[in-house]
Nucleic acid binder design. Structure first.
Lengths: 198, 198
DNA sequence: ATATATTGCGGACGATCGTTCTGATTATCG
DNA sequence: CGATAATCAGAACGATCGTCCGCAATATAT
């Protein structure tokens, strides 16, 4: 008994992944179950598996989708801002806004995935590492420009700047998700500003 | 009550909890299974359940044990240091050392528990909140003293200081667990020092 | 010494997990 | 139009999950 059409049961692959991201942001990338997602999509488990092949491949696709959303929400809006310190501050602003009104419930997807898979070697672990590496490299690049422009002290290690901003971001996400208190966001912004005003 | 040896299978309750903490630090507080811990202890599942009553009670007891270990490793060694900025720096030192050679594998137990349960209301969520609240209150108390002593600018919000140190700590743990690179620890210490040198 | 309470084991339960196979339905192409 | 390829539902599988029950063994109390 076909509902709608054979292929377009629960929408396109992109719609499937959007639902996966939303669900996984609440229960984690490991807590994301085939049966749970299938039910949410109104399709069968086997049908869902047919689309991705295995749970691990579903996790990888979901992580990719989340990374895309993160990039569009945090990186890209700052492309109009001049590189260097100004863009670094714009990224921090975008991040705090992203945390206050995340495109999916459950807070920062990448933080959860990082904690879930930091001790389990495998393809998902590798993928998480790559995403974080690109994010840190982006921060470091802007920090380098800021130092070249004289907007940060000349002795500054750009990797230190990237590390600090990222650590504050990840730590802020944990605090905010736990307490759901918007003062966390204000404190985070102040802490980031202070770190960039050394 | 009787401790010691109806069968003396896996030692005392404290030994059981030590094993639980070690296991949960690797697989998380939710990934900590009755069967897995029982096997590790060389006892049966039902015997283990008899000790705690349910998985949730086991999680609560394990969290308490981890919080005790954290307190003994990070707080207490700094009790000899004068309150205020000096003790704040000592706590940061102790924290970084704790991260580099944690009393259990898998990094900071509380960070994992925080991420795992931040979206699941219940007794475990409440317990995690309490532990974090005490930890932040301790940091804030030292920050207040530091401000009173004139070691931090008079306009500083002590809660901001506590927030920043904690966020850096949590974020550092995530970075370090993912990449296993000791440079994270050095960067963390520098970031904390910079935050305390405003 | 007898009675009671405590403790742990083996086994079983229902539920859910990821995965696989078969068959029916639909889309695509010659 | 008919043949081929793709897609999804249904059912079942072995494994593992948390929990519960009955029974045997031990420790404590009277």
């Amino acid at each position: 008994m076909a509902r709608r059409s054979a292929t377009e049961v629960a929408g396109s692959r992109a719609q499937t992944l959007d639902a996966a991201v939303q669900l996984a942001s609440l229960v984690g990338l490991e807590g994301l179950t085939i049966g749970g997602l299938a039910e949410r999509l109104g399709m069968s488990k086997s049908g869902l598996v047919g689309r991705f092949g295995s749970k691990e491949k579903l996790q990888l696709a979901t992580l990719d989708q989340a990374a895309d959303i993160f990039r569009r929400t945090v990186y890209e809006p700052t492309s109009a801002t001049p590189p260097g310190l100004a863009r670094l501050n714009a990224i921090c602003d975008a991040w705090v806004a992203y945390l206050g009104r995340p495109p999916f419930p459950g807070g920062c997807f990448l933080t959860t995935a990082m904690v879930e898979f930091d001790g389990r070697p495998g393809p998902v672990n590798d993928a998480v590492k790559n995403v974080m590496r690109r994010w840190l490299a982006l921060l470091e690049r802007e920090a380098t420009t800021a130092i070249e422009n004289g907007d940060l002290p000349s002795g500054t290690d750009p990797a230190d700047v990237a590390f600090t901003i990222n650590a504050l971001a990840v730590g802020t996400n944990c605090d905010f998700q736990l307490n759901r208190n918007h003062s966390s966001l204000q404190r985070a912004r102040r802490a980031m500003a202070a770190a960039l005003a050394q």
